[in-house]
Nucleic acid binder design. Structure first.
Lengths: 117, 117
DNA sequence: TATTTCTATAACTGAATAGTTATGCACTGG
DNA sequence: CCAGTGCATAACTATTCAGTTATAGAAATA
């Protein structure tokens, strides 16, 4: 089971759009730092910092290929994040169902012309 | 589809263990602010601030019951967060499978005594 | 060996975050 | 109406964060 502070790191890492974009790119395969810098209007050190955050969260690992440090996505903490969310999903869904039931009940007393999205 | 900045807010909100605990509590049903303060070794304004963050992220909504402001969990942004993660899950899984396949291939050329975890 | 390529680190800045205490405001109930 | 309850807001502090430029180091290449 993931520790609370592990989830802190994972969700904090995911809170930045640049880092999510990096992960989205890495989902298609490993990449070097320069390859990750290229699509962004941002300096190389900025990307290196983001990679450090992702690595500290265990979301990526680094390899070695000559001068290059290829970046590899690590699935486990992402799966843990999904796991945390899924733990509570059933409760949200039951509240949704309660809401759905209530709405259905209300609509049965409402003229069709008042029904909205 | 959720906007990028919406995901920013959602994941940032989830990055704090106090806020995750609040959501876990709310998954079981609505609660007043004081009820949410009680389990934490933290001032009431601190909890109110956390609730403001959760509300800004759309993760909770507030009602009104006399002086009380009951807090209600909102499932949609959480579902969106799961959605983002799930979008890439299949790629992680396929990279896992690729890795598994590669390892299997390598092991077929490797003496048993060299096989490691 | 000198140069170039790839990446990391240092030092700095401005903005955001999480907490505190003190206080104010709205609504209830006696 | 006024005392108390429930909550929010203000003002402040310490810390963290995301970005910058400048520089250093490590490995390949010419």
């Amino acid at each position: 089971m993931p520790s609370s502070s592990q989830l802190d790191l994972t969700f904090a890492a995911l809170a930045d759009p640049t880092r999510r974009a990096i992960l989205a790119r890495l989902a298609q395969g490993d990449a070097t730092v320069n390859e990750l810098v290229e699509p962004f209007d941002m300096s190389q050190p900025a990307i290196s910092k983001h990679l450090k955050v992702l690595e500290a969260a265990g979301l990526v690992s680094r390899g070695r290929d000559a001068q290059r440090r290829p970046v590899h996505i690590e699935a486990l903490p992402l799966a843990d994040a999904v796991g945390w969310l899924e733990t509570y999903r059933k409760f949200w869904e039951t509240s949704y169902q309660r809401l759905d039931g209530l709405l259905a009940e209300l609509q049965s007393f409402t003229p069709k012309s008042d029904q909205k999205n």
